[in-house]
Computed example of a mutant assay.
Amino acid sequence: MTTSLSHAAPIVQIGMSAPDFTLQATPDQKISLSELRGTPVVIAFYPADWSPVCGDELGLFNAALSSIHRLRAQLVGISVDSAWSHAAFASQRKLHFPLLADFEPKGEVARRYGVYRVAEGVAERALFVLDANGVVRWAYVSPITVNPGVDGILDALEQLNSSTKQDAQ
């Protein structure tokens, strides 16, 4: 992956430790990436709640959640919307994974991952698969108007599980 001129920082690369963060999951609860260590984590950055492509993308991830969990992974979504917007959006779409608010300072986490669109003030549509130690093992930035689907995530998690099993033998 390369850095686009619209990004504030280089995109986090495969093999790098994922930058830690602590973000609002609900108006009164925070989640830190470091708390999720010990299992693989899928981070799905997306531009905004309530947009048609984002709704379809997150709905697809929600439908694949049992497969993601079967592969012993956790999924979190991140956008610059507020925890209140996330709560309403997740309720309306019946989402069963945390949506984290990269709200204030706006886009700080997306900037650290190199996926903040400065001109628009939103995150890219970007996916990161982290291993149990928080190392990026797969990453993909989709065109902002295109739903990337879930196949890449599932393939990356299956490869991660295969290599973990081989390492254990």
Rank of each mutant, 00 (worst) to 15 (best):
L5N: 14
L71C: 05
A44F: 09
W50Y: 13
Q166C: 00
P148L: 06
E124P: 04
V118D: 09
E104G: 01
T39G: 00
P148Y: 13
K165Q: 12
P40I: 07
V109Q: 01
N133E: 10
A139H: 15
R37E: 06
S79L: 05
W84Q: 01
A25F: 04
G152M: 10
M16V: 06
V109M: 04
Q74P: 00
A119I: 01
E35C: 02
H96E: 11
V141I: 07
A63S: 13
A18N: 11
V76I: 15
D49H: 06
Y113T: 00
T22M: 00
F128Y: 14
W50M: 08
K94V: 09
D56R: 13
Q166W: 03
L75G: 01
L75N: 03
A64I: 15
K106I: 12
F97K: 13
R93G: 07
K30G: 00
A8E: 08
Q92D: 10
S79P: 02
L23T: 06
R112L: 00
A139M: 12
A88H: 09
F21I: 00
A119C: 01
K165E: 13
V41I: 13
I78K: 02
V122E: 00
L60C: 06
D167G: 11
I43Q: 05
D167M: 15
R125K: 10
T39N: 08
Y46T: 02
Q166A: 14
L130P: 15
G152Y: 09
A88T: 09
K106Q: 13
W84E: 03
S6G: 02
R117T: 00
E108K: 04
E108V: 04
L60V: 14
Y113E: 02
V53H: 11
